[in-house]
């Protein structure tokens, strides 16, 4: 059958992206229908931007039937927060920003406590607090199976115990596209509509759907300092330079966005989506290379996930 879709000035999606989009929308609707208090984790990055776009599509012409939660560590790139507030206003979203009060009180920073403890307190613990406070029984996340080895084994509905733990050896079987949304009180599910997407799919979808992104994804002359083999953005006063470190201006962009002291920039001249995608197609390193927290030890993502990280 010849299907005509009157897009908003866009050509129709190619069959590959259309299949991924259909699957994600199906998951959004299923979770929204089966759980009492769903919530969407919104991290402002490219995957979250795609996730939000798919959610808007899934529930059109209605509004999103759940709020968004943003775990704000206080160390995000300032451009991310500006972008977040614009998106919330444009779509009339219900956004809850949460920062771990214990971490604020104890002045936990990436510098004082090391990336591992900092991430646990300001991200993992903060996330658990936010989910507990809202009594959410399902949380959407933008994780993809191609990101990391332990994620390749994760279900689309990732079952969590009352203390948010993931038991990779005891996962519920997931057959066809029939999802088991039944849980006991206190238990919850993390739902991953982007499970089967790859990084290239994300970028192509952003291009095809004209999804807006934080400008940090595009190359620009930015102040950076090289630390532990990472190019760290040096625009925030809280970054204390070590004696031998020098701030340089370089043409850089970010492949993933997190906390600025822990997220490395890559040297790049890609200032447009087309250029970013072209760069990606010939890229020889994975996007998570720029993430300090993944490199602590082999299997560190699995450990964090067992403890309740996304």
């Amino acid at each position: 059958m010849n299907v005509i879709e009157h897009g908003r000035g866009k050509p129709p999606l190619d069959p590959h992206l259309k299949a991924l989009e259909n699957e994600a929308i199906h998951i959004f609707r299923e979770v929204a229908a089966e759980f009492e208090r769903p919530v969407m984790l919104y991290s402002i990055g490219k995957d979250s931007s795609v996730l939000l776009h798919l959610a808007l599509k899934a529930f059109h012409p209605g509004k999103l039937p759940f709020p968004l939660v943003h775990i704000d560590t206080g160390w995000k790139f300032p451009e991310m927060i500006t972008f977040r507030d614009e998106v919330v206003a444009r779509h009339g979203l219900d956004l809850i920003a949460h920062t771990n009060p214990d971490g604020l009180r104890d002045n936990v920073t990436p510098f004082s406590h090391g990336s591992s403890r900092y991430t646990d307190i300001m991200k993992t613990q903060a996330l658990k607090q936010a989910l507990d406070m809202g009594k959410y029984d399902a949380a959407f996340g933008g994780a993809r199976r191609d990101e990391e080895a332990s994620r390749a084994k994760e279900r689309i509905y990732s079952f969590r115990t009352p203390d948010h733990a993931w038991d990779p050896r005891n996962q519920r079987p997931e057959l066809w596209s029939i999802y088991n949304g039944m849980i006991h009180t206190g238990e919850s599910v993390r739902a991953f509509p982007l499970s089967n997407w790859t990084e290239v799919d994300i970028w192509r979808y952003i291009q095809a759907e004209k999804i807006e992104l934080v400008p940090l994804y595009f190359a620009k002359r930015r102040k950076v300092v090289e630390r532990d083999g990472m190019l760290v953005l040096a625009e925030d006063k809280r970054l204390e330079l070590l004696p031998e470190e020098q701030v340089r201006e370089e043409m850089v962009r970010f492949r993933t966005l997190g906390c600025f002291p822990l997220t490395g920039a890559v040297r790049s001249t890609a200032t447009t989506l087309d250029e970013v995608i072209a760069e990606l197609e010939i890229a020889t390193v994975s996007e998570r290379q720029g993430r300090a927290i993944d490199r602590d030890q082999s299997g560190s993502m699995e450990k964090k996930k067992r403890e309740g990280y996304f």
Partner: peptide, 18 residues
């Protein structure tokens, strides 16, 4: 058949629709 991308004239197996 309503989708976010306005109106469709048809939908086939696999399409998420309203």
């Amino acid at each position: 058949i309503v989708t976010y991308d306005l109106v469709r004239n048809a939908a086939v197996h696999g399409d998420a629709i309203t």
